[in-house]
Simulated assay, not measured.
Amino acid sequence: MKYLVMVQGTQADYEAMQGKASEHSVAWKPEEVQAMYAYMSALNDDLAETGEMVDGQGLAEPARIRHVTLGEDGKAVITDGPYSETKELPAGYWVLDCASLERVTEIADRIIRCPQPAGAPVYPVEIRPIMDGAGDI
């Protein structure tokens, strides 16, 4: 079965990885960012080797989001950046083809252990089964 596995983050998290501390997160050092990328790269290589990796990508920072909604007049309303009330947003994802929910949960356990500096926020890893189009809900 295919699963969507997502990690979350905020604009402050992206800025912290660029060395800018905030009340939300400590500033990351360049070697901490490199350790995170190396860990995720090794994980992706392992998943490709097992044949479970379908796709996986990091997402651009929330400041680069564009929302398109339908206005009351029926025309598109376009806004840039996250809504002010939005906190965590998807920061990256994997589409994995795993034999079981237990297996994808093992992978999520590896993801949650990605190295980061002490004091950086830790978000849950979200697992969602992907519907196969045959009407499963």
Rank of each mutant, 00 (worst) to 15 (best):
A99V: 09
Y14L: 03
R103G: 08
A16Q: 05
A38L: 06
A42P: 10
Y83M: 06
I78Q: 13
Y37D: 11
A42H: 12
S41W: 15
Q18D: 14
I65H: 08
M1P: 11
E15H: 15
E15R: 07
G19K: 02
E23M: 02
E31S: 01
D46C: 00
L43T: 04
I130M: 09
V26C: 03
A42K: 09
D73R: 05
Q57C: 13
M131W: 14
D97M: 02
E85P: 03
M1W: 06
E106N: 04
I78E: 15
Y39A: 02
L70E: 13
G56L: 08
P117D: 00
T50M: 12
G81Y: 05
G58V: 05
A35N: 04
Q34P: 01
A120T: 01
A99F: 14
Q34H: 05
K20A: 10
E32L: 00
E15V: 02
G81D: 08
L96A: 01
T50R: 04
V95F: 10
T86H: 12
L59N: 12
Q18S: 15
D73F: 03
A91S: 01
S22T: 01
G119Y: 00
I130R: 15
E85A: 01
C98V: 04
E102T: 08
M131S: 13
T10D: 13
E61T: 11
V77C: 08
K29C: 03
A27Q: 07
D45T: 11
E102D: 15
E52C: 01
P82N: 05
H67Y: 11
M1L: 04
E72W: 14
A76D: 14
K2Q: 11
E49Q: 12
L59K: 13
A76I: 09
Y14Q: 12
Q34M: 00
G56K: 11
L101V: 01
G51Q: 08
Q57I: 02
Q116W: 05
